[in-house]
Design a protein around this nucleic acid. Structure first.
Length: 652
RNA sequence: GCCAAAGUAGCUCAGUGGUAGAGCAGCUGAUUCGUAAUCAGCAGGUCGCCGGUUCAAACCCGGCCUUUGGCUCCA
């Protein structure tokens, strides 16, 4: 901030090796690095001063630690992408001078830039813009940072006719505004950036979409162009390959192909129909969790789907959740609400009798189906629906039971995720904004007690977590759990969430050892979250190739010819008796075709039978993806498959 | 909800104003076959819906419905 003109002054620079050298103030970081022959000067994307990324050609202003950011550094990607977005904006301005630039940040997996323009951008335009970008990159234009006063920046963008940029200068700039320039294109930007356009090694424009200015529906809609960039063509190709892989695994596509579920236009959007095969999977994932509930001391309850508005007026949902709720009016003019949440119902059950401290903790679970109105544009396969079933539970406990309860929730989540093969799990702790405690319900004591239970439970289990200040909802702190699927995508599944609001609103209590009525702590927790969404995630995680315990059809018998069809029928009933979900391929196809069909249906066990097997009561086992396993007695196969199913193992 | 794109057989998709097509799946028949596609035949469509233009519309125009990609992650 207060860097005075210190041109020429000798400043101490600490190199990554620990060596300390002197450099003149005003020397560029690149020159200093080059002079002292820092490793990778030529390949560096940017520099790092005291840990903070900055331009390679930024002038040295103070004594600092200096290091270089290389292309494989995670920070490098953000810089590469941000610079690519500027080049894209430059290309757009060159091709379509009437376009106004809005904003163009790097994102998690690429970048975008928003433009205002009378005409939308077409796919053909994207191709043209890409070509122009390549030209700009080839020209090796220097990307130069300028620092000017706020007023100069305002004047500059006024002159360029860029109202959106002016808005950003007005709202975001301090006394000094920085802008970057390359090839005559100027963009108000904090940086850092690449030193020249040539440094962009690999990029691709992906799509165009409408996006509201500042994300608000009140505002006009701008055109957003999405793209991505990487440090090398290989990395870009790998990324595009991942996108392709994600498309291949798309649960909407697999759901149709494997006859698992559908969404019916006639019934309305966002309502899932679980077909027979999908329903089998649902029963398995639900049954697994019910076993967990059983062993972990939960009670399982069932609450009504609709309730009088009164219930949701008490809970407060009627007021702050009204626009997401479906309501009904009866002939005798009573209002009913289709439940958007299970918690009020569970609180009513808790409240239905006097509770002693000896009754706590009460762990109340329900696969509760809720309906929430979502705007049509937000619906997305099974991931965003209007009707879904939560594996919901509410724990009512005393303050000294908190830690153990949170710990058990984490333990349950871990057990469950292991079973599905989610090895990589992230924990996120959201706490209140300590500077602004007014907007939260609950006492300071409750908040700190709850937070400490969450933190201690995580620490006790040795689970690293990220902490988000001010991210808690108004009624309590929470832990969100994210899992990483088979192709590296994160999904937020579980949540463990304190609620200081509902116990107050419903005025629930327990009688403590001292005879006093006290308010219990209340914790919401879900492991899968929504059964629909979790199902969608599982379909994509397994690419439809479910492990034996989940597979709707676990084994398919493939007779080599109808000479052994009788043996096939006999085998089918034998397997069914053993509790293995099986099918018999009675078609007159050749064995290769039957195998192909079974593989495409992703059936875990294929049992090929011919005269040899019929002779001695055996099967020739073929395991999905792994191929021929040779012959074995039927009883042995039943034992093997039975074990894999019983143990819920991921492999056959 | 808003913006863009799309909607043709169960599925994937051709079809730019003149008799609606292919592959796969399905059915029938032949083949009786040993680890990812045997051959032949048959059947299958109000071209999302409603209206308009035209001698004539899957195709052009308008409206609606649905789906898809998006809708402030540091300027």
């Amino acid at each position: 901030m207060n860097e005075h003109d210190i041109q020429g002054e000798e400043l101490k620079v600490t190199l990554p090796s620990g060596e300390q050298v002197f450099a003149a103030a005003g020397d560029t970081l690149f020159d200093i690095a080059a002079r002292h022959e820092l490793a990778g000067v030529k390949t560096a994307i940017a520099a790092r001063l005291d840990g903070e990324a900055c331009d390679l050609h930024a002038p040295l202003k103070r004594a600092a630690h200096l290091s270089l950011i290389q292309p494989d550094d995670p920070e490098a990607l953000e810089i590469i992408r941000h610079s690519t977005s500027h080049v894209m904006a430059q290309a757009v301005k060159e091709l379509y001078p009437d376009a106004k630039i809005a904003q163009g940040p790097a994102t998690d997996d690429g970048f975008y830039y928003d433009f205002q323009r009378a005409e939308p951008f077409s796919d053909d335009d994207l191709v043209k813009i890409e070509q122009r970008m390549r030209k700009i990159i080839k020209k090796n234009q220097r990307i130069v940072r300028h620092e000017v006063s706020r007023e100069e920046a305002l004047a500059l963008f006024a002159e360029e006719g860029e109202p959106y940029k002016r808005y950003f200068v007005e709202t975001k700039s301090g006394e000094v505004a920085s802008y970057y320039e390359q090839g005559g294109f100027r963009d108000f930007c904090r940086g850092p950036h690449l030193s020249s356009t040539r440094r962009i090694a690999a990029f691709k424009l992906l799509s165009v979409a409408g996006a509201y200015w500042l994300g608000s529906e009140e505002n006009e809609m701008l055109w957003r162009i999405y793209g991505t960039a990487f440090a090398s063509q290989e990395q870009l190709d790998a990324h595009l390959h991942r996108l392709e892989e994600a498309r291949r695994r798309d649960h909407r596509r697999l759901g149709k192909e494997l006859d698992l579920f559908s969404l019916q236009e006639t019934a309305g959007g966002g309502l899932a129909f679980w077909h027979a095969k999908g329903a089998i999977i649902r029963q398995q994932i639900e049954g697994f969790l019910r076993e967990q509930l059983q062993t972990r001391g939960y009670v399982q309850v069932i609450t009504p789907h609709i309730a009088k508005d009164t219930l949701f007026r008490i809970s407060g949902h009627y007021d702050f959740y009204h626009e997401n709720m479906y309501t009904l009016r009866t002939a005798d003019d009573e209002e009913f609400v289709i439940k958007p949440m299970n918690c009020p119902g569970h609180v009513m059950i808790y409240k239905s009798g006097l509770k002693s401290y000896r009754d706590l903790p009460v762990r109340m679970a329900e696969f509760g189906t809720v309906y929430r109105y979502e705007r049509s544009g937000t619906l997305h396969g099974l991931f965003r629906v209007r009707g879904f079933t939560q594996d919901d539970a509410h724990i009512f406990c005393t303050p000294d039971q908190l830690l153990e309860e949170v710990d058990d929730c984490l333990d349950m989540a871990e057990t469950v995720f292991n079973t599905y093969g989610f090895r990589d799990v992230h924990y996120e702790l959201s706490v209140r904004d300590s500077k602004n405690t007014d907007k939260y319900i609950g006492s300071d004591e409750e908040w700190s007690e709850a937070e400490s239970a969450l933190v201690k439970a995580l620490e006790k289990r040795g689970l690293p977590h990220k902490r988000f200040e001010g991210e808690a909802v108004f009624y309590g702190p929470k832990i969100d759990v994210k899992v990483i699927d088979a192709i590296g995508r994160p999904w937020q599944l579980s949540t463990i969430q304190f609620d200081f609001n509902l116990p107050r609103r419903f005025d629930i209590s327990y009688v403590d050892a001292d005879g006093q009525h006290k308010a219990p702590y209340m914790v919401h927790r879900a492991i899968y979250g929504s059964m629909e969404r979790f199902f969608g995630i599982l379909i994509e995680h397994f690419a439809g190739a479910f492990p034996p315990w989940l597979a709707p059809v676990q084994a398919r018998i493939l007779p080599v010819s109808d000479k052994v069809s009788e043996y096939g029928e006999q085998l089918l009933s034998q397997l069914e008796d053993a509790g293995i979900r099986s099918e018999l391929d009675r078609r007159a196809d050749k064995i290769g075709a039957k195998i192909r069909d079974a593989e495409l249906h992703k059936i875990p066990y294929m049992l090929i039978v011919g005269p040899r097997e019929a002779e001695n009561g055996s099967v020739s086992l073929r395991v999905r993806h792994d191929g021929d396993q040779g012959s074995l007695p039927t009883s042995e196969f039943i034992a093997r498959a039975g074990k894999a199913i019983e143990e819920r193992s991921l492999k056959g």
